[in-house]
Amino acid sequence: MQPLLKLCGNHSEHDTNVTLSSNADYIGFVFAKSKRQVVREQVEAWLKQEGKKEKKLVALFVNEKIEQIEDAIKGLPIDIIQCHGDETAEEVKKINEQIQLPIWKAIHHQPDAISVMRKYEGLVSGYIVDCKVGDQWGGTGVSFDWEYIPAYLEEGKRQGVPIFIAGGIRPDNVDKVLEYGPDGIDVSSGIEDNGQKSKELISQLEERMKRYDNNVSR
Rank of each mutant, 00 (worst) to 15 (best):
I163G: 10
Q2G: 04
L123G: 05
V18Y: 02
R218V: 05
N194G: 05
G85M: 07
E50V: 09
I107N: 07
G168T: 04
D183S: 12
R170Q: 01
L123D: 06
Q82D: 06
V43T: 10
V133E: 04
N96T: 08
W104L: 12
N10G: 04
V174C: 02
E192T: 02
P182V: 15
R118N: 02
M209Y: 01
H11C: 14
V187K: 03
R170H: 02
E70I: 15
K35R: 15
M117D: 12
N23P: 01
I95F: 02
D172K: 04
G139C: 09
I163F: 13
V116D: 10
I128A: 10
L153H: 08
G160L: 11
I149P: 00
F29R: 01
R208S: 04
V187S: 04
S203Q: 15
K210A: 02
A24I: 12
L205Y: 14
D183N: 11
S188A: 15
K65C: 13
V43D: 08
I78E: 12
D175C: 02
R36C: 11
C8R: 13
V62P: 00
L20D: 01
C83T: 13
N215F: 05
H11I: 11
P150Q: 15
I78M: 13
S21E: 12
H11W: 09
P102R: 14
T19E: 00
E67T: 10
V133G: 01
H14K: 14
G139M: 08
S12M: 11
R208L: 07
G168Y: 05
H109N: 08
G85T: 09
K6E: 11
V124P: 05
V124R: 14
F61S: 08
K65I: 15
M209R: 00
M117Y: 14
S198E: 07
K197N: 03
S34E: 05
T19V: 00
K210N: 01
I69P: 03
D135P: 00
F29Y: 03
S188W: 06
V39W: 12
G126H: 09
E44A: 08
K52D: 06
S21A: 14
Y127D: 13
K74G: 08
L47I: 13
G168D: 04
E87R: 05
F164I: 11
T19L: 01
P182L: 10
V62R: 02
G181K: 06
K132F: 04
P162C: 15
I80Y: 13
I73N: 05
I185W: 03
I114Q: 01
P162S: 15
C131M: 15
T140H: 02
T88G: 08
I73M: 06
P150V: 15
V92D: 05
